[in-house]
Nucleic acid binder design. Structure first.
Lengths: 106, 106
DNA sequence: TGGCAATACTTCGTGATATGATGTATTCCG
DNA sequence: CGGAATACATCATATCACGAAGTATTGCCA
């Protein structure tokens, strides 16, 4: 899928992936794969950014001898998803503008 | 509106603004304003990019003593709009993933 | 036991791109 | 006469997705 189109969806998609329960990087990628594929470097960059902007918190836990960083969504993160929903109205009106066929009757 | 969300829409929006008749920079901005606002520097950058990638052609004409560059969409440009429509299915499935509420019954 | 896939996270460099600031030039209107 | 509107161009900057490469452990299978 087009990189530019992806850009507006990635952050909020990652937040959505943890909104119903804490998760960790490797699992997030696999959960999102049917909807949106992303590389590991992309995801970890995004997770860092979302942490720095207070959209999520991190908890390090050991699991089977390996470290895992579990990500937990904050109220700000939930708010970000709400903002996205509100902006979607605008997006749909732009979409209508793009696909609108000129029927020649105006 | 969120810059990242805009990115995937701008190019195709500009193409849509000229698909029913040639237009020029200043007019494109005004036509798009109700749907999507963009600065002049952004638009002229995009028009240049779309020209270089063969999505549109340019014709310079004089209008009232001033130069105007009229932009005309090519078949490649029309194809770009079609691609966008097809990708929209994916976008909507991602949107559904983001807004899906966990109803606690699973 | 040797090796490879899977799991899990990190860092770096690069290319694409939206935007503000700034500049140039003309026309139109009061 | 002057400022708003018209019309386009260039530059520097900040953001960001991504491939490449690296580190380290577990689990499996031949």
């Amino acid at each position: 899928m087009d990189v530019q189109l992806k850009r507006g969806l990635l952050d909020v998609c990652v937040l959505a992936a943890i909104k119903n329960g804490d998760s960790y990087g490797y699992k997030i990628i696999k959960d999102m794969k049917p909807y949106l594929e992303m590389s590991e470097s992309t995801l970890y960059t995004i997770l860092k950014r979302l942490e720095l902007s207070g959209m999520l918190t991190v908890r390090i836990a050991e699991h089977g001898g390996r470290l895992r960083k579990y990500y937990h969504i904050t109220n700000a993160g939930l708010g970000r998803i709400e903002d996205f929903k509100n902006e979607w109205r605008e997006v749909m009106s732009i979409y209508q503008f793009v696909v609108k066929e000129d029927d020649g009757n105006e």
